[in-house]
Design a protein around this nucleic acid. Structure first.
Lengths: 142, 142
DNA sequence: GCTGGAATTAGAATAATTCTTGCTATCGGT
DNA sequence: ACCGATAGCAAGAATTATTCTAATTCCAGC
C-alpha cells in the first residue's frame, strides 16, 4: 500500500505548493512522472504511469493537472505537428529535435549568447512572449 | 457561369501540373486562394472561399487537395498550438510570428547567412529535414 | 468536526481531421 | 471519338484528442 498519511514519500520529494499552485496528490504524481521520465510523454502516457500509484485517477484529471501546471509555468506543453500534446518539465529556453528514425524527442539548448533577433527579421518593435523551435531530422545510428 | 471548357481563367494562371501533381479544378482553386490570400487560412476558410467558384466542393476535398499540395511540396502546413492547421504557399524557409494582439500570423524570414546550427546545440551528426519556428508576441499598434 | 471552495471523476460532448463508399472525370491507347 | 483503367471527388460516418458537465470528494481554515 501507498503511504497516504503524510506528505513524505519514498519517491522524489515535491513541495506542497509550487508557484502558488496547491500540489495535490494527483498533481504531484503527474509532475513527478514528468521529472523522472524526461522523454516528453503525452497525457495518455502520464495517465498510464500515474495509475500505478493512483488507481482511480481519471484521464480528465491528468489533463486538468497538466493544464494547471502549464498555466503556472511549472511545465511546458510541446506540440509537434497535429500529434497529441507532449509535456516537458524543462523550463530552460530550448528547442526540440525529433529524430525521424527513432521518434525520440531531444531537447536542444540554445548556444550561449544567442539572440533570436540575430537570426530572424522580426517585425519592428515586436516583443517576444514565447518561442517554439522544432526540428525534424535524423541522428546517425552509430 | 464559370468557364469550364478551357483551362484558361480570368484569374491567376495556374499550370495544369505542378511538381508532378495533376492540378484539377479543385486543386487549382485551393492553391489560388492560398496564393492570393497569404494570411495562412485554415482548411475551413479555404473551403468557404472556394465554394464561390466551385459550389459543390466538399470540405473533405479541400483537405484532400491541401494534403496533396503539401505532399508534393507545393505548399506548407503550419501548426500553432493545437489550433486548426493553417496553410502557407511561401516555400522559402521562414518562421511565423503570431501577434497576440491581432491574431495575425506574419512570416518572418531568416537573416541572410544564418545557420541554425550556429544557434542550437544540435545532437552531433544530426541532419535536418525540416525546421519550424513559431514566435508568439506582440507588435506595437503604432 | 463543519463548511465552502477547489479538485477530482466519469462520461458525454466537441471539433478537426480522416476514412469509406460509390460516383464522376480524366487519360492513354486504339 | 470510344473504352477501360485510374485518379479524383462528394457525402457522410468514424476517429481521436481534448474539453465540458454534473456530481462527488477532498482539504484548509475556522
Amino acid at each position: 500500500m501507498v503511504d497516504r498519511a503524510t506528505t513524505s514519500t519514498t519517491k522524489t520529494e515535491i513541495p506542497e505548493e509550487i508557484a502558488g499552485l496547491r500540489m495535490t496528490r494527483q498533481r504531484q504524481e503527474v509532475y513527478r512522472i514528468l521529472m523522472e521520465q524526461r522523454d516528453h510523454p503525452t497525457a495518455q502516457e502520464v495517465f498510464l504511469k500515474a495509475k500505478d500509484s493512483l488507481p482511480n485517477l481519471s484521464l480528465a484529471t491528468v489533463y486538468n493537472c497538466l493544464e494547471a501546471l502549464v498555466q503556472h509555468g511549472i511545465i511546458r506543453q510541446v506540440n509537434f505537428e497535429r500529434e497529441s500534446s507532449r509535456y516537458c518539465p524543462n523550463l530552460r529556453e530550448h528547442g526540440h529535435f525529433h529524430d525521424a528514425r527513432t521518434g525520440v524527442i531531444h531537447d536542444v539548448d540554445f548556444k550561449p549568447g544567442c539572440q533570436l533577433s540575430d537570426f530572424l527579421e522580426l517585425p519592428p518593435g515586436a516583443t517576444i512572449d514565447d518561442i517554439e523551435i522544432t526540428i525534424r531530422g535524423k541522428i546517425p545510428t552509430a
